[in-house]
Computed example of a mutant assay.
Amino acid sequence: MNSTPSPYIGFGLGLRTCYFEEIIATNPKVDWFEIISENYFVAGGKPWHYLSQIKERYPIVMHGVSMSIGSTSDVNFDYLDKLKKTINRVQPLWISDHLCFSSLGDFNSHDLLPMPYTEESLTHLSQRLSIVQDYLERPLILENVSSYLTYQASEMNEWTFLAELHNRTGCQFLLDINNIYVSARNHQFDPNEFLDAIPQSAIAQIHLAGHSDFGSHIIDTHDQPICDAVWELFSKFANSHTPVNTMIERDDNFPDFKEIMAELTHARSLAPSNWKNYEYA
């Protein structure tokens, strides 16, 4: 299954439980919301109660965290069945997960582990992606993960690997600019080289988030404000690319909703005019 371009709908936010009531009460100037897929694998409860109201007002996309598409274990069709049922219920504009592995046999790291960047991995991912997309009957967008180690077996850098995966499969990517910055700092490469190497046709979405800086290394915690360096990377990217759906992601240490909205407003301000939804410009 070849991926088709995702529609451009503007600037979004990660939908988190602590903001449900304020979103419903205030109808904030947000173009779309992204939900964590696995949070909605249950039949009912608080998440569905609020989502049913929010999705009447805003487009919704789905983002998974536990598919482990890069694993060498058998494809988890029980997981895919739950995901497909949730997709059918939510009717998201698109779905995504991470280009990584987190499980191997009965072992689950509960972390997003990077792939070795090899020809063998490209073949493996191409096959797995085809199986997953055929089962779900829709394209799957893959997100680059942050990394804290590299593999001696790797035969190419990450951005060359992503570009080649796109060439072979037509898949699109969710570029997390914070993750690129984290990996660039940890492994001492130029994040602009990464961003410049990914074809425009391969980019479906952007994440902007924060991290924790420990000096010698940084950790992708998504619990801090977006730093100036990540804003600068996004600004340069936006002003050299056609519009890409862009989202503010926060997963812990949640501030007042107005602070998240301020980051969304700042993202809009850094992008050229053709990126803006004029209703909210």
Rank of each mutant, 00 (worst) to 15 (best):
R128Y: 00
G45Y: 11
F161W: 15
T246K: 09
Y151M: 10
F77W: 13
Y280N: 15
Y40W: 08
H211T: 14
S130A: 12
L270C: 13
Y181W: 13
Y181N: 11
V182C: 06
R128F: 01
S216F: 03
G105R: 14
Y278N: 07
K236F: 03
G45H: 07
H266P: 00
H63V: 14
T150K: 14
H217R: 15
G64F: 00
N157G: 15
N274V: 01
A238D: 05
A281E: 06
K29I: 05
Q200V: 07
F173P: 10
Y151W: 08
S66M: 09
V42H: 07
N192Q: 14
P7M: 07
T242I: 09
S68W: 02
L125F: 03
S235Q: 14
L13Y: 03
Q172M: 05
V90Y: 01
K29N: 11
W32A: 10
E119W: 04
L113W: 00
F11R: 04
C18P: 01
L122E: 09
Q200E: 08
I203R: 04
S126Y: 03
T265G: 11
V61A: 04
Y135H: 10
E249C: 15
A204H: 02
R268I: 13
F101D: 03
L122C: 12
P243S: 06
W32K: 04
E259C: 14
P47G: 05
G64L: 02
L162A: 13
S126K: 11
F41I: 08
N178Q: 11
P191D: 13
F214Q: 05
E279G: 05
E259M: 10
R168P: 08
N274F: 02
Y40M: 07
N39G: 05
P47L: 09
I141R: 04
V75L: 01
L122I: 15
N245P: 02
S96Y: 01
A238L: 09
N39W: 03
L264C: 01
C100T: 13
N178S: 14
E143P: 02
L136S: 07
T242D: 06
S109H: 10
S102L: 05
I95G: 00
Y135W: 05
A209S: 14
Y79S: 07
G70T: 12
S52H: 11
S6M: 08
F107T: 02
N88F: 01
L208P: 01
M247K: 07
D74V: 03
E137F: 01
H63I: 08
G64N: 02
S37E: 04
P28E: 05
D223T: 06
F101I: 05
V65F: 14
F173Y: 08
L15P: 07
